[in-house]
Each structure stands twice: as C-alpha cells, then as structure tokens.
C-alpha cells in the first residue's frame, strides 16, 4: 500500500509528531517506529500506530532483540514482536547487528562484537529462527561501532554479506553508521560499500551524528551531513532503489525539517533515476 509513490522516502515517527502526521497526512513514503514501543496490549500509542497504518506503510524497527547476545532469552521478545507484526501487518521488519544482554543484564544499547565465525553462526541461527517465526524475511542493519576487536576474523561488511547468504535476510543499509565507522576507524566508506551485498538492500537509513573528542557519535540528533548525502548519491548510482528513511531521535525538530530532509532524499533518488537494485549472485 504505497499511497505516495512520488515521495518514497519515509520518516521515523516519534511521539511529538503523532498528532500532526495523523491530521495533515504529509506526503511521505512510509513511517518507521521502534517495535518495542508498541509491545503493549492497548493504549494510546498503539492506537496511534494503528491509525497511521491506515494511511502509510509501516516499518517496525527493533532495538531490543540483541541477535548477537550469546546468553539471553529471546523467545518472549520474539513472541511480542510476532504479535505486533500480526496486528500491524508492516511493510518492513528490521533489527540491528548487535548484542545487548549477558548474564541476565540488558544494557538496552546497540553494542558491537567481534566479527567471527562463531558470531556469524549464532546470528544466522537467530535470524533464521526469527524469519521462520514471523513467516517473512527481515532486514538487518549495519551498526555504528565506536570500538573494534582484535579477534575479528572479517569486516562487518563481509559478516553481513555472509549473513545475507546464510539466511536470505535483507540489508538495512544505514549510511550514517557506515560513515561514522569509516571516519572513526580511518577507512574509506566507499570501500565498505563495495563489500556490502548491495543486491540485498531493502531500506536505507539517513541520520545525523555528533562530533566529539572521541570521534563521531551516532546520535540521530541533527541533519544528515553532506558526506552522507554523497554516499546516498553513490548508492543510487549503483542502481539501488530501496526506499530511504530519515531517522531523528534526540533533539527532535519540527516535522517540517524531517519532511525537507525526506524531500532531499527523494530528489537524489529521482536525479539518479534508479530502478530497483542490480542483482548479484551469492558468493558463499
């Protein structure tokens, strides 16, 4: 149900914008929410999402499944997600490539881990189980990580490429995360783009970051920077037509600012004249 095909870019819908979006129904391609904020039996937030679902395709973006946590109980969380998916019938379901919990303590943060064969086997098993339970493919998002591990056996891009092959999952390509990592670790973001499975990209995230004494921190609290817009142009020129989304979580501005950012993403897509994705064959 794409109501606004001319404006395929979506926005992250946050509580201060609920009323205006429902009243004015701006031309946006879809809305995205954090799944966990709707793991309820009822109430105002869930009602708002159901009303929004009548006007827009919805993307359920999880932040709490912690796919790479070795020692955590996933079943209850997966069941709550399955219930929400059944209720909302979203266009997309996604999660992050991260761990969050160990020994019963949940840090409720998207934490990095060493990209090893052991981790790949664990995450692939979890993604397969999740897709089996939801009876649909999910997307996994590349992470913004501030630290790197000695024990890594592959890059994140290689890890994600293998994960796509092992599970058939889609890739949620967060260009700000890609950029933040490249800047923090002194690598070329275009190099990471080369290694990622572009054929599997189903959605693109655009967001802002903060510049701190420790490097770039992924805050989702400012406008998309020029370098990240340039990455979007590069991705579009490679023929990736997956819809983009403006993500803004802290210091949330007026809705108009988000809509202007979404319109800019639309223009970049239109200028590049992308159709939907070139297809690669899995190497693994």
């Amino acid at each position: 149900m794409i109501l606004h095909p001319a404006s395929p870019t979506g926005i992250g819908l946050r509580q201060p914008h609920y009323a205006r979006v429902l009243e004015e129904r701006p031309r946006i391609g879809f809305i995205e929410v954090h799944s966990e904020n709707f793991f309820h039996d009822g109430g105002a937030a869930l009602r708002t999402l159901e009303r929004a679902r009548e006007c827009y395709p919805v993307s359920l973006h999880g932040v709490g499944l912690a796919l790479a946590s070795v020692d955590t109980r996933h079943d209850a969380h997966v069941e709550r997600l399955a219930k929400l998916v059944q209720r909302i019938e979203p266009e997309f379901v996604s999660e992050h490539l991260c761990w969050s919990a160990v020994d019963g303590v949940h840090f409720n943060d998207l934490l990095p881990f060493p990209y090893t064969d052991e981790a790949l086997a664990l995450v692939a098993m979890r993604v397969n189980a999740l897709q089996d339970r939801l009876c649909r493919p999910v997307m996994i998002e590349n992470l913004s990580a501030y630290v790197q591990f000695h024990g890594a056996q592959m890059s994140e891009a290689e890890f994600l490429a293998d994960l796509v092959c092992l599970t058939g999952c889609g890739l949620l390509l967060d260009l700000n995360n890609l950029y933040v990592n490249a800047r923090n670790f002194g690598t070329d973001p275009m190099d990471a783009l080369e290694r990622l499975p572009m054929h599997a990209v189903r959605e693109i995230h655009l967001a802002g970051h903060a510049v701190t004494e420790y490097g770039l921190i992924d805050t989702h609290g400012s406008a998309v920077c020029d370098d990240v817009w340039a990455l979007l142009t590069a991705v579009r020129r490679r023929g990736v037509g997956a819809p983009a989304l403006i993500e803004w979580d802290t210091d949330l501005p007026e809705l108009d600012i988000l809509l202007a950012e979404a319109a800019r993403a639309d223009r970049i897509g239109a200028d590049a004249g992308t159709s939907d994705g070139d297809r690669h064959v899995c190497a693994a």
């Binding site: 966990e36 309820h40 499944l65 969380h77 919990a101 019963g104 303590v105 949940h106 840090f107 409720n108």
Partner: peptide, 10 residues
C-alpha cells in the same frame, strides 16, 4: 539494571 529488551518494562 534492566533485564528486558523492552525498556518500557524497566
């Protein structure tokens, strides 16, 4: 500390 992936339960 929190023990659940849904912070609303904390």
């Amino acid at each position: 500390p929190s023990t659940d992936g849904d912070l609303n339960r904390y």
